[in-house]
């Protein structure tokens, strides 16, 4: 008790240098995380989005973590400051936005958390954004480049994005979203046993998640009409827009695919084809062999199982 009080006093006192801020933050990181998590929990409670179970606790923890990460970086620009007050003010500001969290009770399942975790990561990471094309539709980097009609420089970046994602990005995103290895295996099992049911469920959840996170795009990035998409590809501009919007909007992706069908004859139309693990090096080759052997001609369950084993 006394120790706790002492800590709280220390965090409420003025920190005057960056070094002091870093040292104190490192010392009391667990307490800071608990405080941030407490704020997230209270927000969920007050907005009627709370239940006493592990998935809600995990959600609160994850948001506490994300907010604390921002505090640790932005606090360094705020010295001299009182750490507790600064943390509280950053969190209060975040929660005062309209719909700050992507909350839906259906998203609390392992599959929901996986999809929400990937998509929320895609908002802040271009690697994750590119990887969405693979995780949701099974497109390889080469196919992504062709569907998006990217130029040489952008294509090279896509390959780098996939590479970084494979090496570290995926692991980090999964770990942060709180989906355990056991849960991943469970989803894979479901996918193997009831592919259609899982696909329908994923389709429904992806729509929920994408609708929420598309709001974080600038206002001048809305869904385009068929004609506007056609112009954009014909006149060959706005790569960023294509990448961002098409990764976050399935309807537009299908629209663009149909528009460019003649050039994409060997690529199947964007269907939900969930992949839980990142695309491995030479993954498409092994995918090809699996397909040949599997005989269903659809890069679905079997191939994903096979790929996932190589990456586990």
């Amino acid at each position: 008790m006394g120790e706790r009080q002492l800590l709280s006093t220390r965090l409420s006192t003025l920190v005057s240098t960056v070094e002091e801020f870093d040292r104190l933050a490192a010392e009391v990181l667990p307490e800071l995380l608990d405080r941030a998590t407490g704020h997230a929990r209270r927000f969920l409670r007050e907005t009627g989005q709370w239940a006493d179970d592990i998935s809600h606790e995990k959600l609160a923890l994850r948001w506490g973590y994300e907010l604390l990460e921002r505090f640790l970086v932005s606090g360094r620009t705020e010295v001299p400051c009182r750490p507790f007050f600064l943390l509280d003010s950053i969190i209060a500001k975040y929660f005062s936005q309209p719909e700050p969290l992507c909350y839906h009770k259906d998203l609390l399942s392992p599959l929901g958390r996986f999809l929400e975790g990937m998509t929320s990561r895609a908002v802040v990471s271009r690697d994750a954004l590119m990887a969405l094309f693979y995780h949701l539709y099974g497109f390889s980097q080469g196919q992504v480049v062709r569907i998006l009609g990217l130029g040489t420089v952008e294509s090279q970046r896509v390959y780098k994005n996939f590479e970084r994602w494979r090496q570290t990005g995926w692991q980090r995103a999964v770990s942060e979203s709180g989906v355990s290895e056991m849960e991943l295996r469970q989803i894979e099992e479901d996918k193997h046993r009831q592919p259609e049911r899982l696909k329908a469920e994923a389709d429904r959840l992806i729509r929920l998640v994408q609708t929420h996170y598309r709001r974080s795009e600038p206002e001048h990035f809305p869904c385009l009409t068929h004609q506007k998409w056609a112009d954009l590809f014909e006149q060959d501009y706005d790569f960023d827009y294509r990448v961002w919007h098409l990764a976050m909007c399935r309807d537009c992706l299908v629209d663009v695919y149909e528009l460019r069908q003649d050039e994409l004859i060997d690529i199947q139309s964007p269907q939900i084809d969930l992949r839980l693990r990142p695309l491995q090096k030479g993954g498409i080759v092994s995918l090809f062999w699996t397909q040949q052997g599997g005989g269903n001609g659809h890069p679905g369950g079997q191939s994903a199982q096979r790929l996932s084993r190589t990456s586990a």
Partner: peptide, 18 residues
């Protein structure tokens, strides 16, 4: 708020206007 992130999503700069 202003945030700067790498392509991997790493937060390298964050600023919260007080």
């Amino acid at each position: 708020t202003i945030e700067i992130r790498t392509e991997a999503g790493l937060l390298v700069g964050s600023f919260c206007a007080q």
